[in-house]
Design a protein around this nucleic acid. Structure first.
Length: 595
RNA sequence: GGGCUCGUGGUGCAGCCUGGUUAGCACACUGGACUGUCAAUCCAGAGGUCGCGGGUUCGAAUCCCGUCGAGCCCGCCA
């Protein structure tokens, strides 16, 4: 190696340009690809920053060593930057105008044959990718996504600080919290039989920070929930942009976070339309009725309509009987659907039955009349009602779902999604945000018949103490809201209940005695007795934000080291057994299920 | 806990429906050829308990049963 140069590199692999021609450069990186012509060898050397073509000629004393290098070995090369002949320029590479004529070669680390290839865009099974995550992370797509995640988080942090929020850290070892999920527990060595819990969210801490007078809190907060994974839900742990504000109404929370989200999405996806703030508000009840979901995808132009009235006294006995039994009928207009072949309707009917529906009714409208299996049961006046209620005209089809609520809403929502996809109606290159507001404070557990919190028990009920004392609990709304983007629930938040007296009552309705409330939430309840500001906030999911921005549908694609659906870390082999003496120290005896 | 789908050399796939040659192809790997490639190319080679167990059959990657693992979904997740 020539002297006087830095030990490993003078430039990165993405840095050299035509202007560096004739200078001596030293690069270090991974052997991405080799092209061996016998007396001429090309090596594409890769690092975090890019790819540089290195060339060794027949005269080189290093040719033999270089030829034998397996892919992904790590080397340092030193040589002269050479301009490529015009016909040899590679326009696909930023460094494509030059190459490094290798004079010195040092092998830093030899790679064994690879279990998954780093170069190329082959797809690999997820367990292999997770087991060799360090290799997967070298691959272009995942490497880029993880860098994007870092940039998104940096942007969010900058925007939050700019909006006057203060960043805090809150405990990881804490006590069991009142969220709905199971806690991860950590045994205490010094307190036999007692456990810490990992926070499902820093909910109580951020509220305590408001009580402590810090006014505007945020944190890129790790959250731990012992629940099963989904494509959009990482088992175990995830991150939230957790924030909270004092002396605010719901509108002021919206006004604070809307521009942050809008700004981040526009910054990283400038080619896309992003809903400008203020985002539309959709009350929960309307969302369920019109979109069949509490997380409506507003890229889909279709709307669900209640058409129960058009069928109540119609000749279609199947629906009429169901309606008499308490069912409702929901209609979804399929624009230009009448032109679809019979197989389209049959396929959707099959799909609906697979979704658990009894079936999927439809009519195809043409020339003022209607076709389809149930059209003959509908006279002109019923058809007129249907047209008026759904906005359908000749050439359209209308699909019908007939079920009891809330199943009818959910199924109609899936029909809306399905039709949007099948008919190609989903808006492309768009991030459509909305607030879903006015969630019910309570809901009825169908199995136990008991009243339970439908969301966060710390939310302020609309109407306050008076509503709690006078109204049917199931009709009470909370100042509780979700941010939804493209049908993905990004966060849920609320104006909190900052009054101890209302809190006792809120919990009493859900069946918690005064003593229980004090035992479980004594810390926060106590804080509210010494002067608590009205406050509220929300907590958009960082992983889901990055997932949307990256255009991924699987949340593990935006996490550097995710666990699999069974909540196992295949790389670090967690969870793992521990030696008996560690268990003894923690006062734990195992009681394992039989094999 | 349940449903659906998948499981074939290191990796991605084909073969399975309709049982019967030496289980085929590509990438990677090993050896060889090759002086301008950029997914280099060409030749040769090595590498497989067809997830595991049982059954049917003269014969099973293929059919049947069970089991294990993975993914997606339901439950669950304010």
């Amino acid at each position: 190696m020539s002297g006087g140069l830095p030990r490993y590199r003078t430039h990165t692999c993405g840095e050299l340009r035509a202007q560096h021609t004739s200078t001596t450069a030293r690069l270090s990186g991974w052997v991405h690809r080799k092209r061996d012509h016998g007396g001429l060898l090309f090596i594409d050397l890769r690092d975090n920053y890019g790819l540089t073509q290195c060339v060794l000629k027949g005269s080189s004393p290093h040719l033999r060593t270089a030829e034998g290098l397996r892919l992904e070995s790590v080397v340092t090369v030193t040589g002269t930057v050479v301009a490529r002949a015009p016909e040899a320029v590679n326009p696909k590479l930023p460094t494509g105008e030059i190459e490094l004529a290798v004079e010195g070669l040092e092998v830093l680390s030899i790679a064994e044959p690879l279990p998954i290839q780093v170069s190329g865009d082959a797809e690999y099974p997820e367990d292999a990718r997770l087991r060799h995550r360090f290799l997967d992370l070298r691959r272009e797509k995942l490497h880029r996504t993880i860098l994007l995640r870092s940039h998104v988080i940096a942007s969010i942090r900058r925007r939050m600080l700019g909006a006057g929020f203060t960043e805090f850290q809150t405990p990881i070892l804490t006590s069991s919290s009142p969220e709905g999920a199971r806690d991860y527990l950590v045994p205490s060595r010094v307190h036999p039989g007692k456990f810490y819990a990992l926070p499902q969210a820093p909910q109580q801490f951020k509220q305590l920070l408001m009580v402590a007078g810090f006014d505007r809190y945020f944190q890129i907060a790790p959250c731990f929930r012992d629940e099963d994974g989904r494509a959009d839900r990482s088992p175990g742990e995830f991150y939230q942009l957790d924030f909270e504000m004092s002396f605010v109404t719901q509108e002021e929370v919206f006004a604070a976070i809307g521009p942050v989200l809008h700004g981040v999405f526009e910054e990283f996806r400038p080619e896309c339309v992003v809903t400008p703030p203020p985002f539309p508000r959709i009350p929960f009840d309307e969302a369920m009725l019109t979109y069949g979901s509490d997380k409506p995808d507003l890229r889909n132009p279709l709307a669900i309509r209640d058409v129960t009235a058009a069928f109540r006294d119609s000749g279609f006995a199947v629906f009429a009987a169901a309606i008499a039994g308490g069912a409702v009928v929901r209609g979804v207009r399929a624009p230009q659907g009448a032109a679809q072949p019979r197989s389209f309707f049959d396929k959707l009917g099959q799909w609906a039955r697979a979704e658990g529906a009894a079936g999927l009714g439809y009519v195809a409208l043409a020339e003022g009349g209607a076709k389809g299996p149930i059209a003959k049961f509908l006279d002109a006046s019923h058809l007129g009602k249907l047209r008026a209620q759904t906005g359908a005209t000749d050439g359209d089809a209308i699909f019908f779902v007939c079920e009891r609520r809330p199943a009818a809403d959910r199924l109609a929502g899936r029909v809306r999604n399905k039709l949007g996809e099948e008919l190609g109606l989903i808006e492309k290159h768009a991030f459509r945000f909305c607030w879903v507001t006015d969630f019910p404070m309570y809901e009825l557990n169908e199995e136990t018949g008991k009243i339970e919190f439908s969301h966060n028990p710390f939310s302020m009920p609309q109407g306050g103490l008076e509503a709690l004392e006078s109204k049917d609990p199931l009709t009470i709304k909370a100042y509780q809201y979700d941010i939804v983007c493209n049908g993905v629930e990004l966060s849920s938040g609320a104006i909190r209940n900052h009054r101890a007296d209302i809190m006792y009552k809120v919990f009493a309705i859900a069946g918690y005695s005064r003593a229980e409330v004090e035992a479980r939430f004594g810390g926060m309840l106590n804080a509210f007795k010494f002067g608590a500001p009205p406050h509220g906030g929300s907590a958009p999911g960082i992983d889901r934000i990055v997932m949307l921005i990256a255009g991924e549908t699987n949340i593990r694609e935006v996490i550097a080291f995710p666990m699999n659906q069974q909540a196992q870390d295949l790389l670090m082999q967690a969870p793992a057994p521990v030696p008996p003496e560690r268990l003894k120290e923690l006062h734990i005896k195992l009681d394992l299920p039989p094999e």
